[in-house]
Simulated scan of single mutants.
Amino acid sequence: MKTRTVQRTRLVPHTIDGKTEMVLERYEEQVPVPPRDWDRTILAAVTAAAGLLLVICIGWTTASVGGLLDRVVHPVPAYGAALAFDLAWMMCMALEWLARYDTRRAALPRKAGHAALLMAMVAVAVHGHLEGALVVGLIGATVSAIVKGIWTVVLRHHAKPLDDKTQQWVDRQRADAGGQLAMVAVRRELARARALVAAEEAALRTAPDTVPDRPDTDPEQPTDRPETPEPVPALTTAGPMTVRDAVRNAADSGITDPDAVLRYVRTVADANAKEETVTRYLRAFRRSA
């Protein structure tokens, strides 16, 4: 059995002048070396070689399809579009790899990858036909098919399909996590909608001040207020009323006491209406009368 030397550390007591402290001591230990996992090594080598074939396949298909599209468009967009032919089925193959534990989810990217591969092979064969070398075009088309076939075998080897009960459990867990993730966006949307509704209601409840404050004294405003405030008449209103509308109704109904007007506004319009705002509207209506 093969062994290898490993350096380890441990705490040991060390005494100087009668004072003991725990210090680290380094020592070597021989541990057995596990046998090489040849299965894992071979699988890693095959996967790396398949990756190299992908690079070769992209270069071949891009050169062939790019030469085909170069006949009618500029070479830069032509070869850029040609790159998409192989990248399409390679991306589908990557999605198939991500779904290697779920056979049903892997079925769609597998079918889409086969369709994209077929289009790439047709494009390469057409290019060979137009160049007068149909045989070369057909052989070149098989390059993508060979690489795709190899990767299909590699993916099948890496795939670990789950049994039916385990798959159902995974689906339920995935659905619960997806629902929680969706609720994050839903809660954000609801919070934004509630904020907009609150802002709209606040705007409808209190109109913006359009009459600026003026320092001058209104000669029509009484200087001596009666000790007993005027009663507020029962005014009928239809629908929600703003502070400005409530002050106008009170003034039109003959209410002259500012305190009575304020009580009326707070009753029919806004319970938090400010006294200075009501007084300013009242002065403005008196001047315009």
Score class of each variant (00 low, 15 high):
residue 193 A to H: 06
residue 89 W to S: 05
residue 172 R to K: 07
residue 144 S to D: 08
residue 26 R to F: 00
residue 280 R to F: 01
residue 92 C to T: 12
residue 130 L to H: 10
residue 195 A to W: 02
residue 70 D to V: 12
residue 18 G to E: 00
residue 196 L to A: 15
residue 9 T to N: 11
residue 192 R to I: 02
residue 229 P to G: 07
residue 189 E to K: 14
residue 10 R to S: 09
residue 83 L to E: 01
residue 85 F to W: 01
residue 133 A to I: 07
residue 86 D to S: 15
residue 8 R to K: 14
residue 169 W to D: 10
residue 70 D to A: 15
residue 117 L to V: 03
residue 83 L to I: 01
residue 93 M to C: 09
residue 90 M to K: 11
residue 180 Q to Y: 04
residue 219 P to H: 02
residue 248 R to D: 04
residue 33 V to T: 12
residue 279 T to K: 14
residue 75 P to N: 02
residue 141 A to L: 04
residue 252 D to R: 15
residue 182 A to T: 13
residue 278 V to L: 08
residue 147 V to E: 13
residue 122 V to S: 06
residue 246 A to K: 00
residue 222 P to H: 06
residue 256 T to Y: 04
residue 63 A to F: 04
residue 162 L to C: 02
residue 195 A to K: 13
residue 130 L to C: 09
residue 210 T to M: 03
residue 289 A to K: 13
residue 189 E to R: 15
residue 85 F to G: 08
residue 148 K to C: 07
residue 110 R to P: 00
residue 58 I to P: 02
residue 50 A to I: 05
residue 265 V to P: 00
residue 25 E to S: 14
residue 216 D to E: 14
residue 256 T to V: 05
residue 122 V to L: 13
residue 83 L to D: 02
residue 102 D to Y: 03
residue 88 A to D: 13
residue 95 L to T: 09
residue 230 E to P: 08
residue 137 G to S: 04
residue 167 Q to Y: 05
residue 167 Q to P: 01
residue 149 G to F: 01
residue 205 R to L: 05
residue 1 M to S: 12
residue 219 P to G: 08
residue 167 Q to E: 09
residue 82 A to M: 05
residue 284 A to E: 14
residue 27 Y to T: 03
residue 202 A to F: 07
residue 214 R to A: 07
residue 105 R to G: 04
residue 208 P to E: 08
residue 172 R to S: 01
residue 159 A to N: 04
residue 48 A to F: 06
residue 191 A to I: 05
residue 13 P to I: 01
residue 97 W to N: 13
residue 16 I to F: 01
residue 35 P to R: 15
residue 176 D to H: 13
residue 64 S to D: 11
residue 178 G to M: 10
residue 127 H to D: 15
residue 16 I to Y: 02
residue 141 A to C: 03
residue 276 E to D: 14
residue 179 G to D: 06
residue 198 A to Y: 01
residue 135 V to R: 09
residue 156 R to G: 15
residue 70 D to S: 15
residue 53 L to G: 10
residue 263 R to A: 12
residue 277 T to K: 11
residue 20 T to E: 07
residue 188 R to H: 12
residue 9 T to L: 08
residue 104 R to F: 08
residue 163 D to F: 00
residue 153 V to N: 08
residue 75 P to T: 04
residue 46 V to K: 10
residue 153 V to G: 08
residue 36 R to I: 11
residue 236 T to A: 15
residue 131 E to A: 14
residue 238 A to T: 11
residue 75 P to R: 07
residue 94 A to L: 12
residue 149 G to Y: 03
residue 88 A to M: 12
residue 220 E to D: 10
residue 29 E to S: 08
residue 168 Q to I: 02
residue 174 R to M: 01
residue 285 F to H: 12
residue 247 V to M: 09
residue 60 W to R: 13
residue 212 P to Q: 07
residue 172 R to N: 00
residue 102 D to A: 04
residue 106 A to N: 07
residue 278 V to K: 06
residue 40 R to P: 00
residue 225 R to Y: 12
residue 57 C to Q: 10
residue 277 T to V: 09
residue 126 V to T: 09
